[in-house]
Write a protein that binds this DNA or RNA. Structure first.
Length: 312
DNA sequence: AGCTACTCCTGGTAGC
DNA sequence: TGCTACCAGGAGTAGC
């Protein structure tokens, strides 16, 4: 499922195919994908504008569009992939997926590629490989939002803050500090698993990376957050950042039919999973059988020996 | 504040 | 084989 590393990968890889292209139209095969917006509102907000920003905040992709020759975004397409959403850039006349829910029709690209704008302060990790355009700049293209389960959303807005919910700190950002993370854990008394999944507490983690982070920090998913010791809180802080960084370096996690990069490639972080999806298999550290339970309505994977429920 | 349940959806799979 | 039933999952919302 697309979490922070997958969305980050999509942003990086899709940027060279979007930057500098102009919106010439759109198609909305599944209306609920675009929320309340009518085609007329889309036209007013986006048509004729040029893509100048491709960024990410939490699990949201932010595509910024500028009017005329300006370089400041005055309209945004805010995309959430949820479970099964994908963004793909296709030749304009190429065949569309039966699960296509929304498309932007884009002009040919600029003669000289638009420089990637300075990444948002929440990026945190440098790209390992330089993203390359998949389509020639001379071709008109189509940005397809493909989403079999229809959970994803593409929202057009003049101001992203008006469609984004309250979001906690970016775990790879500069303002995410171990000391304040410890204080924040102390200030609540929720089970770690649902707390870390709460996007207003820390932004961008989902089911996979929460399980992997808790395992790495040797913390039980049901432990109340205010019982986590200072050293353990620091360990969890480091675990979250390490897991996310390594996942970005491997371009995210893919399994079953879930999640592909914009070029259709799977990520490879699934090969690094220590607990997620490894129920009934031995813990790589101690050999104990990994267990799967349900915590807060979410499938939860942990090692009962490494992750003791006692005070951490 | 924090919990539980429900909703949105469909592809995949387990069970018969 | 063909059918039904159920489930995963993020996030928003409602009710307690």
């Amino acid at each position: 499922m697309p979490e922070l590393p997958e969305v980050e990968t999509v942003a990086r890889l899709i940027a060279p195919d979007l930057l500098g292209r102009r919106v010439e139209g759109f198609e909305i095969p599944w209306a609920r994908t675009v929320g309340e917006r009518s085609p007329a509102q889309f036209a007013r907000l986006l048509e004729g504008r040029r893509c100048v920003v491709v960024d990410r905040r939490a699990k949201y992709l932010l595509l910024g569009f500028a009017a005329g020759r300006e370089s400041e975004s005055s309209a945004w397409l805010v995309v959430h992939l949820r479970m099964t959403g994908r963004l793909v850039v296709e030749p304009r006349s190429g065949a569309a997926s039966p699960h296509r829910r929304f498309s932007l029709l884009l002009s040919a690209g600029p003669r000289r590629p638009l420089a990637m704008p300075a990444p948002g302060p929440w990026r945190g990790v440098a790209a390992k490989r330089a993203p390359v355009a998949s389509q020639p700049a001379s071709a008109k293209v189509r940005l397809d939002f493909i989403d079999p389960r229809k959970f994803g959303r593409c929202l057009a807005t003049e101001d992203p803050t008006e469609v984004l919910p309250a979001l906690g700190p970016e775990p790879l950002g500069e303002d995410f500090k171990a000391e304040s993370f410890f204080a924040a854990l102390r200030a609540r008394s929720r089970q770690l698993k649902p707390l870390l999944l709460d996007q207003s507490f820390v932004a961008g983690l989902g089911n996979i990376y929460v399980d992997e982070s808790l395992y790495r920090a040797r913390l039980h998913p049901e432990m109340p957050s205010d019982r986590v010791s200072r050293p353990k809180a620091f360990a969890l802080f480091g675990a979250i950042r390490t897991v996310l960084t390594e996942a970005i370096e491997r371009e995210g996690s893919s399994f079953d039919s879930f999640y592909r990069t914009p070029t259709g490639q799977p990520g490879s972080y699934q090969h690094q999973f220590q607990v997620y999806g490894r129920q009934d298999q031995p813990c790589r550290a101690c050999g104990t059988t990994i267990r799967r339970t349900v915590v807060g309505q979410r499938g939860t994977h942990f090692c009962p020996r490494c992750q003791k429920p006692a005070r951490g």
